[in-house]
Design a protein around this nucleic acid. Structure first.
Lengths: 159, 159
DNA sequence: TGGGACGCGCAAGGAGCGTGCAAACGGGAC
DNA sequence: GTCCCGTTTGCACGCTCCTTGCGCGTCCCA
């Protein structure tokens, strides 16, 4: 595995919280010089430990009122069919996340929509009629307790 | 609602893809000057349309091999009990996302763990024994088709 | 038709970035 | 213990990038 020491972890952790931190700010947090932070950051980017940087937009401010989890069962489990389903999922921007799972459903999708009509359109006009899909069950998010994509870096022992 | 024009949408969309874009790069993409992009970006940050910037770290590179969705049913639905549960969720870093949902389960959690033992520890030693929790069902992610937090900005009409 | 508000690009001063360099550190071999 | 070599560090410098002030053009409404 890629070797990541305590300084790297501090840098990663800080950048996870604020992706636009200056090398100097990073330096103050990590107890290094700014140039070292620059070098380490570049290395972590090259090694793809840092996969990218993204702005986190407010769904409320932009009028996306509905988040839903959609459980999908496929019609058949042939390779062709799951390929069709994956292609479908990929071209729908409203679907933020999609996973195949152990358990009852074959897939779980997380979708972000402007309103319930948007969800209805997605489920009834796009997913349900698609040839790859057998059944669909959607659950609407009532409350977001927590929503981040931060990794629990404290679980990692430096080395 | 906050007014967002076509230039803002281009800026937001670009920053969603790459949160470290330079004002000059933003300017080239949006067809504006760098100074205007700087001003618009600052406004969007002040209005909390841009909630923040985050580095996206590679879970594979850092050795997080297991993602799981955990459905939780509460013991009782009293305000005190859900408060206890929320406090629990908040202090567990392995839980990235947590939502209350319509449908069967009261809550769904998305957790990131180093290995299956980590999941077992979380479910059996932390969640199950907690007084607020009645039952727990976890599903392990077999494959990630898609994993982002990008909003479908093309759904928004500028104005 | 005039005036105010707004949004624009330009330019300049200042902050931030990254490469070169030399010094400090650390671990093996002897 | 000590010598050697690879690695990591801080500093300095040239360059890019950021942001604020300013003047100009445009639009809207009186």
């Amino acid at each position: 595995m890629i070797s990541v020491d305590a300084f790297d972890l501090k840098i990663l952790s800080a950048l996870q919280d604020d992706g636009r931190l200056t090398n100097q700010e990073l330096a103050d947090l990590a107890g290094l010089s700014a140039s070292q932070c620059s070098r380490r950051r570049m290395r972590l980017e090259e090694e793809k430990v840092i996969a990218g940087y993204h702005a986190d937009l407010s769904s409320e401010a932009l009028g996306f009122g509905v988040i839903a989890f959609i459980q999908v069962g496929l019609a058949t489990h042939s390779p062709d069919n799951s390929k069709r389903f994956r292609a479908l999922v990929n071209r729908i921007d409203e679907i933020q996340e999609a996973y195949s799972l152990t358990g009852d459903a074959d897939y779980v999708l997380k979708a972000v929509l402007r309103d319930l009509k948007g969800l209805s359109d997605l489920v009834n006009d796009v997913l349900m009629p698609h040839q790859s899909v057998a059944h669909v069950r959607s659950s609407i998010v009532l409350d977001r307790l927590k929503e981040s994509s931060k990794l629990p870096l404290k679980e990692i022992n430096p080395g």
